[in-house]
Design a protein around this nucleic acid. Structure first.
Lengths: 343, 343
DNA sequence: CTGAAAGCGCTTACAG
DNA sequence: CTGAAAGCGCTTACAG
């Protein structure tokens, strides 16, 4: 007969034995699922401490059909905003004792999408947060069973019952109005691909132009390769009607500035350039970048909070919270890269 | 009697029934754990497809004592390098069908560390990758049971049996030697806090100085707040002996440049400044930044690969792979921010 | 090659 | 308030 091998990690049975109670009683103690007499509580508490017991996530997940975890479905996973959002979700999840997972949708083909989402779901996450940055995220969202708590980050208002959105459109409008308010007769917009939703920075630009009675007829979509933006900046430098540029993000903004300067233009004297995101380097750039600051970490935390409310309600057997769409406001940061037109 | 409620997600029993075989047979088919006759294979395959069956991660994890997942233990979770590494690990993990989790150590006190790591372990990850950027990561590593596959990213050579390291020290030396090779008599080093290891950029700077017979006596540690670096740049501007600066990262580099210029210095004519990391904006900065490029995404992938080898060996009941330390090389990118001194 | 049985570590009715 | 029993969805010896 094999010697009883020393089990390294204690399990619930060990604490039950040590405390002199049954396993279900320990479980009840742990989950507050029923009253446990004070003396047993005491013993159990001691046993747990003594053993350094921690309940198994996976055994719980199997019994409960749900794991104490959130998983983030995302694309554009190396982009700045994405990483900040993830970080916010992770820290909020950790605070609640939830595990945090992420599976990115980058480079996934349509045919792989279903099995990818299926795999995520087969780990029984208590909830999932999908971060919308392109069409595939929206498709992924549709594959999530209706009964699992979910919140959508981004998207169009109404794309999902629970949403937290950055104020992209309002922000885009705000930046554009700042430029217009400075006296510019037109604002050219340069942006990377945007999500398929009605809350984009680009739409905000259109809003502002429309409100000013101006045609929103000059926008350029560029790639994420900064050289492309720089090249575009060079071209725009030769168009005297271009006096104000609103770039969809700070990186694009600085590349445009560089291109403008390659051709002898000065910023902001000859042309004003505003960015978006307020990345770390933006305040250091020369000239310091006028931009729109979004706290994406906070946005991630808000998304988790909204998810957690659903999870709790579901566990308590209560009705799901009211559908809601929370907007996280950002703020315009006016620095040196924008100014009134010269003449 | 309750009507048989329609089960939404199929389980292995459903597959077995539909295929007309026993549950263990399906399991063997799935895991290749034993021969299964061709006709049954066929039937099982069909049943799986028909049902859209995916094995439960958690049930497997409970039975196997191990989940098909990796979790990343990290600090400085919003820093650029960290996010890139995570992204690399995630994509490699996904390719192998592994779930990816991250729990950050930011803001965790020493007393919370044990329970935090304990919680991670109680989800039975197949392996964990710890990314060393400060002392707490090293402590966390020590709390991981010896029998769970682990790889350390960073650290000193020898800190763990399995390591993948960026060539930080060699890189730091390389950058410094570039500056020295240009003819500078001294290279001042400015860096943020670095991990407690012998592979830092700062040590590389010392190496180069020593090799050149120069005292490595001018270095400054600054915070992550770029204003601090800018302020330092202003101060250094007034010291004529400062002709070359090696900043520990690109963000610090551009802030230093900004500060230098605030006081009328030109880069690189008056002082050369090199950075480290080759972030997106570095090639766009004016002057384009000389820097050292590390592919952190690739480094993350390499870390997962090394982990996966351990996991596979363990599952196959084989001996663990030889301890190893893989260095991921980076490369010096010479651009415009460095030049020969004027004298 | 293949089933019946037992077990992974929990939780939840079911009876006291 | 508290045990004994059954079950969550798998896997792994154990016998054929």
């Amino acid at each position: 007969m094999p010697p009883t091998t020393t089990r390294n990690t204690p399990v619930i049975k060990d604490v039950a034995r040590l405390a002199g109670v049954s396993v279900p009683t320990v479980s009840r103690y742990l989950n507050g699922t029923a009253r446990v007499s004070d003396d047993k509580r005491e013993k159990i508490a001691q046993a747990i401490k003594l053993l350094g017991y921690q309940p198994s996530f996976v055994a719980r997940a199997l019994a409960n059909k749900v794991m104490d975890s959130v998983t983030m479905l995302t694309s554009l996973s190396t982009f700045w905003a994405t990483t900040q959002i993830n970080s916010g979700v992770e820290s909020a999840a950790r605070d609640k004792g939830f595990l945090f997972g992420v599976t990115s949708l980058d480079g996934i083909s349509d045919s792989e999408l279903e099995s990818t989402v299926g795999r995520v779901m087969s780990a029984n996450p208590a909830g999932v947060i999908v971060s919308e940055s392109d069409e595939i995220a929206i498709q992924a969202m549709r594959l999530i069973p209706k009964d699992v708590p979910m919140v959508l980050v981004g998207g169009s208002r109404g794309d999902a019952p629970y949403q937290v959105m950055p104020s992209e459109r309002a922000g885009g409008r705000c930046v554009t109005e700042h430029l217009l308010g400075l006296g510019h007769q037109n604002v050219v917009h340069v942006h990377r691909a945007e999500g398929p939703n009605n809350n984009t920075r680009t739409l905000g630009w259109r809003d502002a132009m429309a409100a000013a009675g101006l045609p929103a007829n000059r926008s350029y979509q560029i790639s994420e390769h900064l050289e492309d933006s720089r090249e575009l900046g060079r071209r725009l430098a030769h168009d005297p009607s271009v006096t104000a540029l609103f770039a969809g993000n700070d990186e694009t903004a600085i590349a445009l500035i560089r291109g403008l300067r390659d051709e002898g233009k000065r910023v902001p004297q000859d042309v004003s350039v505003a960015g978006y995101n307020d990345q770390l380097f933006s305040m250091i750039w020369e000239p310091a970048l006028t931009t729109y600051s979004q706290n994406f970490v906070e946005l991630g935390r808000a998304a988790f909070d909204m998810l957690y409310a659903q999870i709790e309600a579901k566990r308590a057997g209560q009705m799901a919270p009211e559908p809601q769409c929370r907007i996280i406001e950002g703020e315009l940061i006016v620095r040196e890269s924008t100014a009134a037109p010269r003449d």
